[in-house]
Design a protein around this nucleic acid. Structure first.
Length: 480
RNA sequence: GGCCCGUUGGUCAAGUGGUCUAAGACACCGCCCUUUCACGGCGGCUACAGGGGUUCGAAUCCCCUACGGGUCACCA
């Protein structure tokens, strides 16, 4: 049996981290078995459709490197892969289901349903469709439909008994049929609800593993009733726990930071995001924690899926991102950092050198701007910075040192980190001082900051001779 | 509220009746390295939701309670 999975998002907004994780699992489960991964767009709710949302889906799948085998723009044996283009198919199967006794036409309009709802509310009961139209004679109902009377198609739920299904992560789940509603399968506009479309499409597209969020767990019995009514084979169900923002709140895109694109824009590497979220809810069973997409394809196993919700921890994502950044070459780092360097106005500096300094100190790229601002403009700083107990420095000793450093630096013919360092160390030796007594004041004078992405000679190298000398002079005059 | 699901440290998690005085990772704290900050190295802190069973033995099995989540639409 060829494994076939599908990612079936609704184009109702941007790519959410939770959706992306689901897509990744779907992709991996298929690819681990050399199966097919299908993309299907579920746009049956014309009211919620958001323009451009499908492009975001295509783009995201492409950037994380998950190519689908069948889907919009790609084609395939079981198309179309956009539900709004499958109208007639649903109509046909809905009518067929009515014939098979698994559904019935319902002519109750919104008004009557609302009435029913308020009545239930008044009686303190949960609303449930009363099955009114199920009692209409089949031939008469069909006649009314043919005359063009507005109607929906509702599912028939067996009155007694219960329905059981197997879920790979949650195990055996049994629900009493009395809990199930005779829900709408085909809406008055002729388009199916999710409840119908997913079953029809998954069957027609030969999906073997249905992978989706746990919010569908409670409606899965209804789908089984549907499969059975059609006489179709059941798929393997794999339901996934949600990703949480806090212990009791789901990650929500509205509250700011759950969209994949946002993370990319904030300077996260796509590989780090994928690596992190794949581990949110799945354990490889080994100590390995860094995975490329290819490694994931090779070792992904549903056994490692967990059933309890996981809280999204940006802190750990940042750490993982920093690890990925450390593995970048200086050139790669530079490519990612470039926009931030430019926005900091550093075009005239040696940005490769700066990249080297920054590479081990960056968690996310967007923080570069702040980290390198001092390069372009020496910040206003207080001379108290020169006093550091552990470095054994105070303003007096610093002034003293800087006065020696200034001519020495000026005398360097070939400006490089190495020559600068030699020069400074010579001063240390000549004056019988601790390294820090010379290096701390110089680094402070060059950066104007308590901490900087590099030491005295590295900073001087990046800043260049003229600017370094100028900054030492500034410090001297501040201290005098 | 009914039904379904879940609950190991602050977080992600290993663990499927004995090897658990419970792994690893992030975070945090401390030390070392060191010219700052990082990096790196070493060490530390903190957990089986509670209560009953079953068993020679329970984080692991059963029941109850608590807490949390999901679901109950002509949304998906």
């Amino acid at each position: 049996m060829t494994v076939r999975t599908r990612f079936a998002p609704s184009p109702t907004g941007y790519m959410h981290i939770g959706n992306l994780r689901t897509a990744i699992y779907e992709y991996l489960i298929a690819k681990n078995q050399h199966g097919q991964f299908i993309l299907r767009i579920e746009d049956t709710d014309q009211g919620r459709f958001v323009d451009g949302a499908t492009d975001v889906i295509f783009e995201t799948l492409k950037t994380v490197g998950m190519e689908y085998d069948e889907g919009p723009g790609k084609g395939g044996e079981f198309g179309p892969y956009i539900q709004s283009e499958r109208r007639q198919i649903y109509r046909k199967y809905a009518d067929k289901l009515v014939e098979l006794g698994g559904a019935y036409y319902c002519f109750c309009g919104k008004d009557r349903l609302d009435e029913l709802r308020t009545k239930c509310e008044a009686e303190g009961k949960m609303y449930r469709y009363d099955g009114c139209c199920k009692r209409i004679d089949k031939a008469i109902a069909l006649e009314r439909v043919k005359r063009g009377e507005s109607h929906v198609v509702r599912q028939v739920i067996p009155e007694n008994g219960n329905t059981t299904f197997e879920d790979v992560v949650y195990g055996t789940i049994t629900v009493d049929n009395s809990e199930l509603e005779e829900g709408i399968l085909l809406k008055a506009d002729g388009l199916p609800t999710y409840n119908f479309a997913n079953v029809v499409d998954d069957h027609l597209m030969k999906i073997t593993h249905v992978i989706r969020g746990s919010e569908y767990l409670s409606s899965t019995p209804k789908y089984n009733v549907l499969y059975n009514a059609f006489g179709w084979e059941l798929p393997i169900y794999i339901h996934l726990p949600p990703i949480m923002k806090t212990k009791d709140k789901k990650l929500s895109k509205r509250e700011g930071d759950a969209s994949f694109e946002d993370f990319i824009n904030r300077g996260f590497l796509k590989e780090a995001i994928v690596n992190y979220i794949v581990l949110l809810g799945w354990n490889p069973g080994t100590e390995q924690e860094f995975f490329s997409m290819d490694e994931l394809k090779a070792c992904f196993d549903v056994q490692g899926l967990s059933k309890s919700p996981a809280i999204f921890d940006v802190q750990k994502l940042r750490w993982m991102n920093s690890e990925y950044i450390k593995r970048l070459s200086v050139e790669e780092y530079f490519e990612h950092a470039k926009p931030y360097f430019i926005s900091a106005g550093l075009e005239t500096f040696d940005l490769l050198k700066l990249s080297e300094l920054l590479k081990n100190r960056t968690e996310i790229f967007s923080e570069i701007t702040e980290k390198v601002a001092f390069v372009k403009n020496l910040p206003q700083y207080d001379i108290a910075l020169f006093s550091h107990k552990k470095m054994k420095t105070d303003s007096e000793s610093s002034l003293n040192v800087l006065r020696k450093v200034l001519p020495a630096l000026n005398g360097i013919a070939c400006w490089s980190a190495e020559s600068i360092n030699n020069c400074l160390m010579t001063i240390v030796v000549e004056n019988n001082m601790k390294n820090s007594q010379v290096l701390w004041p110089v680094r402070t004078a060059l950066s104007g900051m308590e901490s900087s992405p590099g030491g005295a000679s590295e900073l001087a190298d990046v800043l260049g001779k003229a600017e370094s000398v100028r900054r030492i002079e500034v410090a001297i005059s501040k201290l005098s």
